[in-house]
Write a protein that binds this DNA or RNA. Structure first.
Length: 499
RNA sequence: GGCCCUGUAGCGCAGAGGCAGGCGCGCCACCCUCUCAAGGUGGAAACGCCGGUUCGAAUCCGGCCGGGGCCCCCA
């Protein structure tokens, strides 16, 4: 806070392949928080250079997810900016031009090796215990050799020529890291068909967009020396402003069994969390804890607090395991923090999904929801639970059913007199509100039949709400109304075996 | 196989030479209680290993072991 740098320019640059996953969200979060903390600029860039994997659908999902999470960006799709366009598929001429310049300046060269040849040599190198990257085969081809290759019909890729000096950088998370040139071989930057690769377009755009800090996943740590070398070459040929960004590599988000959380892992899918009813607040709060902490003794915070406190130096380099239980707990905390009206507002879609509420809920339905919501708010981990918790109030009475398992356990022969006595007690009750309901039922069941409260009320709960777990019983009865309550109690009597 | 990152309770984070260790989740017990939650109280549980530096090491150094990643005409 005291030490902010408004000139910070960071970027979030996902590739639109499939569903957004939580690791991606964590990276976006840290970049966003870093930009906002420093009062800098967040650039949102779409890296859709792989036609085989990227899709328009994924692109739309990505934007939608960013909006849902509450991230805003200063430059990028839909907001534009001085470095537009921000979709790499629309910048192909730029990359072709840069590749041409790199070739002309000798920083890159044509490589005619086939994939098969490369694979074979890589295997051999590995077997011999040597670094298995590209071996420099085409670094210095003679014109005759080139002519031969061309005659064979080979089309070359463009390969970047790495310098032969050690490359060091000071990682913002991990400190100084040095790579020996023999471990960082020349690498491809343009496919044989002319399509540029990530290895080219990512640094080129970072240079052109004047990115100052690159915060990304640890999986890209070992390609950082290549990018630094490419930056130097770009500076030399006049692409970008000549400066190299700082790099910070965020810890992995691990899934079950010490494996990097994969896109295919269902636990990784952002959409799944949305569907279950996670709040953006809760999910982001949890994700922030994967590699960072606000304070020693505080886990629950909102994004404003995170922005105020976040800095990259405080990020921990350890891989972090995604702990669903803790994620759920934090979500529950945020659910409880919601203002009542806001809580109700967010609940609506989750009741609409299974058809318990229509697309345009009526005033009466919303009123009922507003009344039951407070009874559920602190019992809830994810919003989707509203369906099981309060569905009994919204379901068409004709369609109301009792959970089979719960009925089998609770609506036994013993329950029959309990239900019958309850009906009798409630029928003539003058004031059908929680206090009188409770008093009447206690008198009839606990005092009258000598049954412990716990066992007296459970059959009623199952009869009225359909489940053994529900919002408080007497309030539930009031909201259901006397007529329907009595009808359900009577129906439950029919379900009990006659003794 | 080579290189790089990483190693504090089951999990996530604090602690950065000085009482062997803090917080949260989870777990166990008890209290509260119409169910489930929430809340309250208490409890079990950790510095990967071996050396070195030092009066003193979770903290500094080296080695080992473990985990992960990268090494692609994917990003």
């Amino acid at each position: 806070m005291a030490d902010t740098h408004p000139n910070v320019r960071v970027r979030f640059c996902p590739s639109p392949t499939g569903n957004p996953h939580v690791g991606l969200v964590r990276t976006a979060l840290f970049n966003w928080a870093y930009a906002r903390h420093h009062g800098g600029t967040l650039v949102f860039r779409i890296e859709d250079t792989d036609a085989a994997r990227d899709s328009e659908d994924s692109y739309n999902q990505l934007l939608e997810a960013m909006r849902w999470l509450g991230f805003d960006w200063d430059e990028g799709p839909e907001v534009g900016g001085p470095h537009a366009p921000y979709r790499q598929s629309q910048r192909m001429d730029i990359y072709a031009d840069v590749a041409q310049k790199l070739l002309a300046a000798g920083h890159a060269y044509h490589c005619y090796c086939t994939t098969e040849e490369l694979d074979a040599r890589r295997e051999a190198a590995r077997a011999a215990g040597k670094p298995s990257g590209y071996d420099g085969h085409c670094r210095a081809l003679t014109e005759d050799q080139v002519a031969v290759y061309r005659q064979e019909g080979r089309t070359p890729i463009v390969r970047f020529r790495m310098p032969d000096t050690p490359l060091t950088f000071d990682d913002l998370v991990r400190g100084p890291i040095t790579f020996d040139p023999k471990d960082v071989p020349d690498y491809g930057i343009v496919r044989a068909n002319g399509a540029p690769l990530y290895t080219l377009v990512n640094p080129v755009d970072d240079a052109l967009m004047e990115i100052t800090h690159v915060l990304r996943g640890e999986d890209l740590l070992s390609s950082t020396p290549r990018q630094i070398a490419l930056y130097a070459a770009l500076a030399e040929i006049g692409v970008g402003n000549g400066s190299t960004p700082r790099f910070g590599h965020l810890p992995y988000v691990m899934g079950e069994g010490n494996k990097k959380l994969s896109k295919r892992d269902p636990q990784a899918s952002l959409n799944l969390y949305r569907e279950r009813g996670f709040l953006p607040e809760g999910l982001l709060n949890y994700l922030a804890l994967l590699g960072w902490s606000l304070a020693e003794d505080r886990d629950v915070f909102d994004m404003a607090e995170m922005v105020a406190a976040f800095d990259i130096d405080d990020v921990n380099g350890n891989p972090a395991r995604f702990d669903l239980k803790k994620c759920e707990h934090l979500n529950a905390e945020h659910v409880r923090r919601l203002a009542p009206e806001e809580f109700v507002r967010r609940l609506v879609p989750y009741l609409q999904a299974p058809g318990l509420l229509p697309a345009e809920p009526g005033a009466e339905q919303l009123d009922l929801l507003a009344k039951v919501a407070p009874l559920t708010q602190e019992r809830m981990v994810v919003l989707g639970e509203i369906v099981n918790m309060a569905g009994f109030l919204f379901v068409d009475p004709a369609a109301f059913t009792v959970d089979e398992e719960d009925a089998a356990k609770v609506l036994t022969a013993d329950a029959r007199p309990v239900l019958e006595a309850s009906i009798k007690a409630l029928e003539g009750l003058a004031d059908f509100t929680p206090e009188p309901i409770q008093a009447a039922l206690r008198e009839a069941l606990v005092d009258g039949l000598g049954i412990k409260p716990k066992f007296a009320f459970t059959p009623l709960r199952v009869a009225v709400t359909g489940r053994r777990v529900s919002p408080p019983l007497f309030e539930s009865m009031e909201l259901l109304g006397r007529a329907e309550t009595l009808r359900r109690l009577a129906a439950a009597v029919e379900l009990t075996p006659a003794s």
